[in-house]
């Protein structure tokens, strides 16, 4: 990470603000650094991939995941507990007939505690405005062409749930290990803008 020339004034403003808050006792010394370390060690798309891979190989886990995702991910050592407000994880499963895609049209809600920060395109006005109205067009733009017969459901994260898409297991992956299967899963697949 680096601070570019263009946003040097913003970086200076943040440093100044932290100094003022610390001086006034609104921030403890080292508090920001502790939080930065916690982020670095926190959510990651790999957590989502591990959840998907387990659901692909273990039908009982898959059933528990779809019934109560916040509890089921605890079996893999994950939790939704790091969020700033109480949140529930909802997992929606793609199948041959229906494809799910996630957005937050009002802001940028995303399971950050589980997956880390969302990609910039997810937070863009372009994605947020268009995917609810023309999901097929947006998915095509992002490289996912679905059969005309596949129904699309868009989930707008407008309240306290956070969503994760469970992609379909690709054909020809019967011989792969759980770790190899997890390696196939992308962040876009977890949002629903890629097949896997």
């Amino acid at each position: 990470m680096s601070t570019t020339h263009d946003d040097a004034p913003l970086a200076a403003q943040v440093r100044h603000l932290e100094a003022v808050l610390e001086e006034r006792g609104w921030l403890a010394p080292g508090e920001i650094d502790e939080r930065l370390d916690a982020f670095a060690a926190g959510g990651s798309p790999a957590h989502g991939a591990a959840i998907v891979a387990r659901a692909w190989i273990d039908p009982d886990f898959r059933a528990r995941l779809l019934a109560d995702a916040s509890a089921a991910i605890g079996e893999l050592g994950f939790s939704m507990g790091g969020a700033l407000q109480e949140q529930e994880l909802i997992v929606v499963a793609n199948d041959a007939d229906e494809h799910h895609v996630v957005v937050c049209t009002l802001c940028s809600c995303y399971p950050i505690a589980l997956l880390g920060p969302s990609p910039s395109w997810y937070k863009s006005e372009a994605y947020r405005s268009r995917v609810v109205r023309d999901p097929r067009g947006v998915l095509g733009e992002l490289g996912l062409e679905l059969p005309a017969s596949t129904r699309i459901t868009v989930w707008d994260a407008s309240a306290e749930s956070r969503y994760l898409v469970l992609p379909r297991r690709p054909e020809g992956t019967d011989d792969l290990t759980e770790a190899e299967l997890a390696g196939l899963v992308t962040r876009k697949g977890l949002i629903g803008t890629a097949a896997v």
Partner: peptide, 25 residues
């Protein structure tokens, strides 16, 4: 902020291998 359903925004731009943050600040 309430942009859902609006038209006229530009194409969606993806950044390959996007880092979690683009700057320390």
């Amino acid at each position: 902020n309430d942009v859902g359903g609006m038209v006229g925004f530009p194409p969606i731009v993806e950044e390959p291998d996007e880092p979690a943050f683009h700057a320390d600040w």
